[in-house]
Every structure is written in structure tokens, then in C-alpha cells.
């Protein structure tokens, strides 16, 4: 049964129903995400482990060089770089690939009525599977330096939840905006490159000295720090947690509001 009355659009309830249905079909989203990866790496020997390998190369190369440049002990710098790089990769992939959430599914969107949130869930699960391939790398770094993660490490799970929510918001919001305005994809790609350098990933927050208090203004820093802090620095500041939660909630609200307003136009955009 499908009923739509243009005089009474009831946009919010339709959007929420869409999100509910999409979440309920997580099994389908999971299968689609697995199939995406299978196809992306078809014929490749290492598959998604290529990302792990390239991160490893970057880690070793940058690790030795920048520890020297910044005059930091390797045992201190390497765990910072490893966690930062891995988390950044997850965030950056979520934003850049999020732009294609809807356009890559144009065929199926124009063929049958499915919840749009299904495509969002598919993108998030796909990115999470890819991210999981980098975990051995973190273990390797901790093992190589013979150093245990800090006792607050379980708090990083909350950070992961925040990251997952942001991934979903990015896939939903950017997926829609980029379907309508194709230039945004390019803008997002260059912004992420810019953000990589202004966020403490290859450099450490301490290098900023007194000015480091302003860092939580950078959303990427706040969200990154909710995982990095607990893992290697004995927890994150309260300011960081507050900022990260606010950014995440704000972005999610923006994504859902935009979705509710323009859901009906999306099929025309792709």
C-alpha cells in the first residue's frame, strides 16, 4: 500500500518511516556492503588489505621522518600517528565516498521504491568493514613498541559510536547534496585534503603550546580525539567530549532535516 497526497506531504513522518524501514533491512544492507567490497577488489590478491598495507607504508615512512623533524621520541610519536591515520582514513573515506551514496544507486532508485536510508546503511557498513582491516595494524604498533593501550581504552568505543553516527550523517547529507549539485563532490574532496593538514594527525596537539585549547573548534579533531585520547593518552578532555557530541548531534539533525525536506525530490536528482 502506497499513498501520497501532495497537499498533505507529512514530510517528517515519511522520512522517519524511511529511516526505520532502512534500519530494519540491515541484513540486506550488510549483503550489499559485502558485495560492494567483493566487486571493488575482484581479481585483487590482497583486497581491502591494500589499504592496510598503504597505511603501514605511510606509517613507517612518516613515523621515522616526522619523529625526527618534530624532535619527538619514536615510542611516543608512532602510536599517535598510527591511531590518527587509521581513524582519519575512516572519516575521510566516509565523507568522500558519502558523496556517491545516492548517485551510485541511481539505477535501483529509479526502478523500485526502497527506503533511501538503506543505501546509507550500506555505505556505513561498507566503510566499517574496510576500517576493520586496519585494526591489525594498530595491534602491530602496540606490539612492536611493547606498550599497552591506556586503561581508559574502552571509552574509545563511545568514540567509535560517534564516528559511526557521523558516517551515516555524511552518507545521507552529502549523498543528497552531491546528487543535486555535482560540484560538491570536488569541494568535499579538496576540503578533506585541507582538513588532513590542519587536524593534528601527523603533528601532535602539544606542538601548538597554549593555543591547543582552540583545537576542539575543529570538528575533525574533536571526533578523532574521542578515539585517540582513550587509546593512547589516558582519556580525552571533557571539552573534547562535549564538542564531539555537539558536532555529531548537530550534523545528524542537519542531515535528517535536509532528508525530511527533500526526500521526495531525490529520485529526480540522481
Amino acid at each position: 500500500m502506497y499513498r501520497v497526497d501532495a497537499d498533505q506531504p507529512r514530510r517528517l513522518s515519511t522520512a522517519l518511516a524511511d529511516i526505520r524501514q532502512g534500519t530494519a533491512s540491515w541484513r540486506l544492507a550488510w549483503e550489499l556492503a559485502r558485495l560492494d567490497l567483493k566487486n571493488r577488489y575482484r581479481g585483487s590478491v590482497l583486497g581491502p588489505f591494500w589499504i592496510t598495507l598503504s597505511t603501514l607504508v605511510m606509517l613507517v615512512g612518516l613515523g621515522f621522518l616526522y619523529a625526527r623533524l618534530f624532535n619527538l621520541p619514536l615510542t611516543d610519536y608512532l602510536p599517535h600517528l598510527a591511531v590518527s591515520l587509521v581513524v582519519w582514513q575512516v572519516l575521510s573515506t566516509a565523507f568522500v565516498e558519502g558523496c556517491g551514496t545516492m548517485t551510485t544507486n541511481a539505477g535501483i532508485i529509479r526502478q523500485m521504491r526502497l527506503p533511501f536510508s538503506l543505501h546509507v546503511l550500506r555505505a556505513v557498513l561498507r566503510s566499517l568493514i574496510v576500517a576493520a582491516h586496519s585494526l591489525p595494524l594498530l595491534a602491530l604498533v602496540f606490539l612492536a613498541l611493547w606498550r599497552a593501550p591506556s586503561a581508559e581504552a574502552p571509552q574509545a568505543l563511545f568514540g567509535l559510536v560517534l564516528i559511526a553516527v557521523n558516517m551515516a550523517s555524511a552518507a545521507l547529507f552529502l549523498g543528497m547534496v552531491c546528487a543535486r549539485f555535482r560540484d560538491v563532490t570536488q569541494i568535499v574532496a579538496s576540503l578533506m585534503q585541507f582538513a588532513f593538514f590542519v587536524t593534528p594527525i601527523i603533528w601532535k596537539p602539544q606542538l601548538l603550546g597554549d593555543q591547543a585549547v582552540w583545537l576542539p573548534l575543529n570538528p575533525f579533531y574533536a571526533i578523532l580525539e574521542t578515539v585517540r585520547g582513550p587509546l593512547i593518552a589516558g582519556g580525552a578532555d571533557a571539552a573534547v567530549w562535549v564538542a564531539a557530541v555537539l558536532y555529531t548531534a548537530g550534523f545528524a539533525a542537519l542531515a535528517v532535516a535536509f532528508f525530511a525536506r527533500f526526500r521526495g525530490r531525490l529520485a529526480f536528482w540522481v
Binding site: R3, Q111, M112
Partner: peptide, 25 residues
């Protein structure tokens, strides 16, 4: 149910099978 109308009312009752585009999907 793919395109949402900008005006008017539409009600479709029953399970829909669409054979619109051979290769889409």
C-alpha cells in the same frame, strides 16, 4: 512509487512489480 508527485493524490494498493527498465537493479 519512485517519483513523488508535486501535486494531487495517488494511492496504490497491492504489491507492485515493476518491469520498467531491464538492466536497472
Amino acid at each position: 512509487g519512485v517519483f513523488e508527485p508535486v501535486g494531487g493524490f495517488l494511492e496504490v494498493s497491492g504489491e507492485v512489480g515493476s518491469l520498467i527498465d531491464a538492466t536497472a537493479g
